[in-house]
Design a protein around this nucleic acid. Sequence first.
DNA 1: GTGCACCGAACGATCGTTCGGTCGGACGCG
DNA 2: CGCGTCCGACCGAACGATCGTTCGGTGCAC
Lengths: 203, 203
Amino acid sequence: MTSDERSDGSARPGRAGRRSGHAEPYTLASLVEVAARAFNERGYDATSMEDLSRAAGITKSSFYHHVSGKEALLRAALDRALDGLFGILAEPGASAGAPVDRLRHIVRRQVEVLATELPYVTLLLRLHGNTETERWALARRREFDQTIARLVADVRSDVDPVVAARLLSGTVNSLIEWYRPGRVPVAELVEAVDRQVFEGLLR
Amino acid sequence: MTSDERSDGSARPGRAGRRSGHAEPYTLASLVEVAARAFNERGYDATSMEDLSRAAGITKSSFYHHVSGKEALLRAALDRALDGLFGILAEPGASAGAPVDRLRHIVRRQVEVLATELPYVTLLLRLHGNTETERWALARRREFDQTIARLVADVRSDVDPVVAARLLSGTVNSLIEWYRPGRVPVAELVEAVDRQVFEGLLR
DNA sequence: GTGCACCGAACGATCGTTCGGTCGGACGCG
DNA sequence: CGCGTCCGACCGAACGATCGTTCGGTGCAC
């Protein structure tokens, strides 16, 4: 973390000597991925454009040739996270069937999306609402959570549905705090969350 | 959020005109509370010393008369959070009895500490490890989590204890994302978490 | 020759922190 | 009591550093 960044070698086009023509350009998506990873490691505000450009392998001014600014990178990353989450609600399993089955489907798919879109969802879940972009993303996220809350209310009307839904979302979302791809297979993770959420620690 | 901060009137000594003597000095604890609240609202890096001093009701230079710097405020707040959490482990109910009872005691008390020390614990749970202070706090926090993980392994050896412990901590810690004092009584919150953690959503 | 990827240098703004100074109440002393 | 001194709370102004962003220019590929 002192200098010579980019501890993981991914998402870095092959321009080892600036020779050999264009050689795979920096796409917006690849730079957003680099940015999302850096934002998660140090936090959005603590990550400078110098950090990002160094992680991408070019200078700060060159970096601005590909992206319009810091906040645009954040918005693109949040967009990707929200698209993944709302995509779940558009699936047949989320709208058809008994409420408990729909809830179960959403929870399991949400675990999968969290795992596959980890850097982007992590950013979404750590927002503060400082800028208009962040407030917009937070509003969409609340929309998603409320859909789940209504389902929880249908499944369990005896306990406080609001509190139960918050705890459910908290359990699922807490994956971003520790899950890293590769260690635990996603399918295994889905089963673990499903069991703990619906059956609890005491069977 | 544009200007004229301090939306909540607490923690502000009565020096309405600078007249009338000393009139309750700014204690370190009261300034740490102000700082912790501000850090949580905007994030540590996005909160300037100007923000903090304005929230305290004095100028930035006066603020430095009472505190040694920004990072010292963070450390004091993290200290308070960690003291609260490790205090739980020192209680008799955390070390005596069957593992399941000890786990239950810790979980219930942890909910109470999270609720009462909300701003400080929130800060602790959102660290990035950018500075030495943050890394020290994260190390202590891992220590606390591992104690719980060992207990979970004693209670449930059939499921992956590591994953189960992470999900348990995630569920409890997710309180900081939505719980605000006053809305839901702490006792009620304790019962809701206990039931959901140990019995699950399906009874 | 035209255009695009890239770069160094600099912009104004804002950051955390420091410094010199003002003001008023507390206090020692005759 | 009156008075000189002191000290802590407070402030405006400025420090160097770093931030996000812009600009003019260079060089290679086509």
